[in-house]
Amino acid sequence: MIDFDTTDPKLLRVTITGDVSREEVKDFYAKFKPEIDERHRTGVLVDITGFKDITPGAMLEDVIEEFGLLGDMSKMPRVAMITGNRTWAGMVRYLNPIIPKMETRVFMPSEIRDAEDWARDLPEPKERKPGLSVIDTDHPDVLAFELDGYMDDDDMDIIVRPFRDRIDKGGQFNALARLKHFAGFDPEILFDRALLGMKWDAIRALHRYAIVTDHQWVRPFAGMARLVSKVDVKIFPMAEEQAAWEWVKQPIPTAA
């Protein structure tokens, strides 16, 4: 069962109990979406203390509906989740850094008042600056960029252009990415043909790819990259950035 309470002008309450069916999910989003459209910004509180199970069809429906809400994340800058389940709490903490424009925190059932206060206390909107920027290098075979914030689809050309120019010159090259803060991304990026084409060609042109970051959630993605390509991917902590530069500036073997 999904209960949806809209009586608080600063907070939307969602309480999930028992088993959840696909029809219940569809009915919930039919009410939730219009409410989000009407509100400029709002906090959200999701209480799953009494949640038991969800059918496969309901889970698929929820994923589809949530993907459709990616463009409205900025309207829900804070989401408080109430649960005593450690597995759910761990999943939320892991995924929180990669959810765009929205911060999610987990609270215990005994902390519901703190959760309400936190979700209502919305931060002031910040003036957006490009999350991506190119780092100048003194090496012809090294391209570098920095991610610090939210990646907008309009920002993609900042890195697509120099990478495309270097790929078109032929031969292999190295790259370095400095990841300071990741605040999510515009879902349109997933369908950016110029970016997708550049990534596909870069897989064959890249020799070494250094990622400088202290974010641990990056490691599984780097591991997957090693499995599906021949690019030598290596992660360096921020304190060892100099070692990362020295690594990518080493001469590329002719055999590569």
Rank of each mutant, 00 (worst) to 15 (best):
D3H: 01
D5M: 01
D5Y: 11
T6C: 15
T6W: 04
T6A: 13
D8F: 12
K10V: 00
R13L: 14
T15C: 10
T17I: 05
G18A: 06
D19Q: 08
V20Q: 06
R22E: 10
E23D: 07
E24D: 09
E24Q: 14
A30W: 03
K31H: 10
F32L: 12
F32A: 10
K33D: 14
P34I: 09
E35G: 08
H40Y: 15
T42I: 14
L45M: 08
L45I: 08
V46L: 07
D47W: 01
D47C: 04
T49G: 09
T49D: 15
T49A: 13
K52L: 06
K52R: 09
D53A: 09
P56A: 12
A58V: 03
A58T: 14
D62S: 10
D62G: 02
E65P: 04
E65K: 10
E65A: 14
F67G: 08
G71D: 15
D72S: 13
M73I: 11
M76H: 09
M81R: 02
T83L: 08
T83G: 09
T83N: 08
N85Q: 03
R86F: 11
T87C: 06
L95G: 03
N96E: 11
I98H: 09
I99D: 03
I99C: 13
K101T: 07
E103G: 04
E103R: 02
T104Y: 01
T104S: 13
R105P: 09
E111M: 07
E111C: 04
I112V: 06
R113L: 03
D114G: 06
E116K: 11
D117P: 05
W118R: 10
W118T: 06
P123F: 02
P123Y: 14
E124D: 09
P125Y: 08
E127T: 05
E127Q: 10
R128Y: 01
P130L: 05
G131W: 11
V134M: 07
H139N: 11
P140F: 02
V142A: 00
L143D: 01
A144T: 04
A144S: 04
A144N: 02
A144M: 06
F145A: 10
E146Y: 07
E146P: 00
E146Q: 04
D148T: 05
Y150E: 05
Y150A: 09
M151K: 14
D152K: 00
D153F: 04
D155V: 07
M156Q: 10
I158H: 12
I158V: 15
R161K: 13
P162G: 14
F163A: 02
F163N: 05
D165A: 15
I167K: 09
K169R: 11
K169G: 05
K169L: 09
G170Y: 02
G171Q: 08
F173E: 07
L179C: 12
F182T: 06
F185C: 11
F191P: 07
F191I: 06
D192A: 11
L195H: 08
G197Q: 12
M198F: 12
K199F: 12
W200N: 12
W200Y: 15
A202W: 04
H207M: 08
R208M: 00
R208P: 01
A210E: 07
I211E: 01
V212L: 02
H215N: 02
G223L: 11
G223F: 05
R226W: 13
K230S: 10
V231M: 02
V233A: 07
M238I: 07
Q242K: 06
A243S: 11
W245L: 00
W245V: 01
V248W: 00
Q250E: 02
T254K: 13
A255Q: 14
